[in-house]
Design a protein around this nucleic acid. Structure first.
Lengths: 217, 217, 217, 217
DNA sequence: GATGAATGAGGTTTCATTCAT
DNA sequence: TATGAATGAAACCTCATTCAT
């Protein structure tokens, strides 16, 4: 599935080559977290990885290609996020816990992939199709099962309400989680204490999904 | 109040200079909407404004400085957003309308200032203090009165509920609105129809603020 | 003698113009003392003088022209140096005093015109005729009467000695004085105390002129 | 001892790199002799060396850095000047010859390193510590042994004379030699014939060191 | 596989210089 | 007289990119 790892000129990379390639990716990842995307240069990545620019070009045609690969990896990992939603109960205390774990899991994932997710967001916002696709994949890992859940909950209850679309609701909620994660200091600057954040998000998710406030703890 | 507009070397700009300066800002703003921030160069801004790079440097030390000024202007304009919240009713039909107008107004503002807001977000996410401050100001224009509103609504109802913090709730909701605005195609790619978006946001805002679903139309 | 002061385009400068022009020269002089000649720019001179580059160009075609004018002024002042030599006695105690005053006067003059003399030296060393001419004028103010003095002293004593040429001797001595003045910290770095400098120079001058050591004080 | 030669970004230069680097230095040296220091540009040095500015910047951060390296090399070579003084006799005919050879050797060295020494002088006169240090080293190569010589000569003769400090004397003499060398046409313009120069300098050096005129040839 | 080394290309910056006001 | 303002021109400087080793 992961296919062969190849050099730019088509050769298959051996053990040593793979290691070099990976080190370049790692360094790139770290640099994305440390300096503005605008300022990330091939030369710096190579130098920080202890190799030369020439080596970088053995494996990637340019910085963007390497970024896309990091993004791809992240997208692959994001599949696991689905488990935060599928097969969970949204009733009563269990529902509150489901919402809590969803928020927790999401924030953790975001925090871990901080830098690359920021770049994906940027690329997508700027209209780059490749990044839009990846972003969709990452958010979809939660949005889709969440939308299904909302649908299902409604069909179980006395339906007929002209309520908001499940997909739109789920999408909005996940977008919110992502955005809050991406701007860690933002809400504090607006007067929300660090400790208040998760409860608020949990509450909103619960409200959005079920239409009611979560049960008290 | 706006202080004197000065050139980089400290001279006070006259009528003609101001015009040139403004034209540069306008062109920069347009370019931010058209190409990745990464690719915006002094030379292009100058060319598009019908002047030379040398002239650009009379008024700004670099692209970032000009961007910050655009951002500043946007922040100033954002103050008007407060009116979407202050003095509104959240009860019944009126409440639904308040939420709708809030969402509408916010999206409209975001759409209008699309490009620069994206750059502000990026700068803030990358940790640049100056952008964080501006972002806080923009979002604060809505978050603060909204948090007050939540507070007030609670105190009026039979209180005592251990609910999420108003500031965190308001912050999360506004962050959501901003993020959804910033990624216009995103939710559609996730299966939400364009038309479903506003109702969903409206619903979430109403739920978040009042704790109940909005009244039917 | 000093002719009319004119602007670059040939107009005769009035009272106000003269003042501006002079201020530019003064600032240029000060800047030559403060930063490497390499780094002195029209823009800076004008700015420091509280005017604009355009004004500078009203009075001087370029920096070099202004420098030459400063140099010219210095050359004019240097004429007074002759008095350190003419009509002095070189016999006995009086001779020592003559040498001392010569050294003193020369160092004082050099210290006062420090910066511009450095530039003159540089220009001359680099082969610029105009600076060579000025330098010659400045040093000539002392060299010529000094050479005459040597000549005269010899003709008075039992002549016939195949001794060094008076002009070459005088020129070398004065060059020495100038060079020592130009590098104030140099000799100290080489182990000569500040207080030892003048006596040494005095002694050398006396030796060079008279062929004998100066009398004890 | 000379340490590794490295590029600006910290790589160790190999055989080819060293050659390029050296060619740049050589060309810079030649250019300093041909045009005013003010006008020496990276682009010209590179062009003359048959490379590109980019290559220049691989090896030097700017022109000044390269100049300092040339200066350093010259300083190293200057150590050999000491031999013009150490172990020489200053008595009678031999003394005259010692003085002659000292002057000759010094002038030859100066003529050979003409250009860079001029720049060193300039930098030092303008107060740049790095140049002052180098200048001190160069002149020290002669000044120190010469001062020792003076000291020794005095201690041998019936001492007790309150004479000028040896270091100051030696320093002044060497400064004189350097300055005369640096302004080759200067003395001629002041009426000293080319052929008279060395005898005059020889005479002054001899007088300064021994206190008496040199013996006739 | 890796990389010293070189460099074309192009944006950045600075200035001298001009001109209309 | 003075100077805001603009800019051509040129150097600076950085990088992506290539290639021979």
């Amino acid at each position: 599935m992961t296919g062969q790892v190849t050099t730019v000129d088509g050769r298959v990379a051996g053990r040593r080559g793979q290691a070099t390639r990976q080190k370049l990716l790692d360094c790139l990842g770290r640099m994305l977290g440390a300096s503005p995307y605008r300022d990330v240069k091939v030369i710096d990545v190579a130098r920080k990885a202890g190799t030369s620019p020439a080596t970088f070009y053995q494996y990637f045609p340019d910085v963007e290609a390497a970024v896309l690969e990091l993004a791809e990896t992240t997208a692959r990992e994001s599949a696991a996020l689905s488990e935060l939603v599928t097969g969970r109960s949204w009733a009563g205390r269990a529902g509150r816990q489901t919402a809590e774990e969803l928020v927790d899991g999401f924030l953790a994932f975001w925090r871990k992939h901080d830098a690359i997710l920021r770049v994906i967001d940027l690329g997508a916002a700027e209209g780059d199709r490749r990044f839009v696709r990846i972003r969709t994949r990452v958010q979809g890992a939660i949005v889709k099962p969440l939308a299904d859940t909302i649908d299902e909950l409604r069909s179980r209850s006395r339906g007929g309400e002209t309520d908001a679309s499940p997909a739109a609701l789920a999408g909005s909620l996940v977008t919110m989680l992502a955005a809050v994660s991406a701007q860690p200091k933002s809400l504090q600057a607006l007067g929300a204490k660090q400790a208040d954040l998760k409860p608020a998000l949990t509450s909103l998710v619960h409200l959005g999904v079920t239409g009611r406030r979560p049960a008290a703890k």
